[in-house]
């Protein structure tokens, strides 16, 4: 039985899920810290609540990226084909998109961790 392949439907969208999660994580962290420091804390005020919120965003973002990356990895492992997935077949296009999804998930995970590291070292609004 032929497996149904998603090469020309959702897997193209899945490619950009991880970078989008990274962008949302960055935006959410930035906006949270900016609003807290502008409205709720003095210039030298503590950002403790912001740190916990950003920790939560980070866990959520890494879970989403991990799920997306694992998904891509499974598509990359379809059948017994080896890299590079460059044959002109639906299967190889499917594998290629999966592999690219997995690599982008790795990049996005590192970016999310780098962004979150700021609040490990910064304690106040300065």
């Amino acid at each position: 039985m032929m497996k149904s392949l998603s090469e020309n439907r959702e897997s193209l969208w899945r490619l950009i899920v991880s970078p989008s999660v990274w962008a949302l994580h960055f935006l959410a962290s930035y906006v949270t810290a900016a609003i807290w420091c502008a409205k709720f804390a003095p210039a030298s005020g503590s950002i403790a609540p912001v740190r916990w919120l950003i920790a939560a965003y980070t866990v959520a973002a890494l879970l989403a990226i991990g799920w997306n990356g694992w998904n891509g990895y499974r598509r990359h492992r379809l059948g017994a084909a080896e890299l590079p997935h460059d044959a002109d077949t639906p299967e190889d296009r499917h594998r290629f998109l999966g592999f690219a999804t997995a690599l982008l998930a790795g990049l996005s995970a590192i970016a999310v961790i780098f962004a979150a590291m700021a609040v490990v070292y910064f304690q106040d609004c300065r």
Partner: peptide, 25 residues
Amino acid sequence: ALFPTVVLAVLLIHGFRMMPPLLAS
């Protein structure tokens, strides 16, 4: 992949650690 990630992480952490003392009152 690995080498740039490690180099950037070291630079980033070093930079982050420098900033609070530079901004201290």
